[in-house]
Design a protein around this nucleic acid. Sequence first.
DNA 1: CAATAATTGAAATTGATTATCATGTTCTCT
DNA 2: AGAGAACATGATAATCAATTTCAATTATTG
Lengths: 144, 144
Amino acid sequence: MNKKIADLNRYLADKGLKITRQREAVAQVFFDTDGHISAEELYIKVSRSYPGVGLTTVYRTLKLLKEAGLAKERRFAEDSQGVFEKEDTARHHDHLICTRCGKIIEFKEPLIEKLQEEVAQKHGFSVEDHKMELYGLCSSCRTA
Amino acid sequence: MNKKIADLNRYLADKGLKITRQREAVAQVFFDTDGHISAEELYIKVSRSYPGVGLTTVYRTLKLLKEAGLAKERRFAEDSQGVFEKEDTARHHDHLICTRCGKIIEFKEPLIEKLQEEVAQKHGFSVEDHKMELYGLCSSCRTA
DNA sequence: CAATAATTGAAATTGATTATCATGTTCTCT
DNA sequence: AGAGAACATGATAATCAATTTCAATTATTG
């Protein structure tokens, strides 16, 4: 699935930026990753397939991916490290987070989104994006 | 409204910790603050009424307030600094955030909460807490 | 009031992220 | 293809928020 790499390259060309081996490496590995990944983790993962790419470049590329609308940064409570995920999966999904074991489940609920729109309108807002996190105990932690 | 100070003192006594002038100062100023405040901002505010209280102590006291269930820490996207708010207002309210001017409006929507419970149950979770943020443009930024 | 244990503030430390800078690469134009 | 200009890279240093350390101080308890 090189469509996203193509999207990135189009964005770069558009901005007068350059297509490099490192950017492609980081982007490729990132797009092959499901769920959330931190810059540090991505750096390690990239290093396995494409050694010699610096952590700094990983940070910089993730920033570009955000600007290009291909990645999304999230910050979970109490977590000092930011995590990234692909923008397409980031869109319209929310998180259930177990406060004991840290397990994170992603879900979608169109009805909630409809209500969000309504609330926003009531306050004169137009919604572009949202983030919802439910904190609680997962079934295994509750019975344990 | 010294009830909360009393709550804090009860918590401290319970844990074998001490009631100090500094803790009371930080707590008092924090409880008199509406909305969100960062540790740094709170430090400045405290320093005006009670000079000589260190930033470290503000951080430590906020941590205690969290443990005592009297404060809640939040982390908004893209914001490196965590912010705190009183637990009573933190409970069951959500945020509308303008992506241009940064304005934050708080709201409640019981229906959304009901749906959250249902979704969680579907995944075997019991909800203890939640966080929801809607990002968009406020009315003035949209027309500007 | 004395002994004990917790607290304080300043400074040092950590961990994540960003800036700097000399060197290397890509793109554009011919 | 080649040269020049502009951008990118990676190592290191710097920054920023938050935490830890530690010697000196203070609250509690008996």
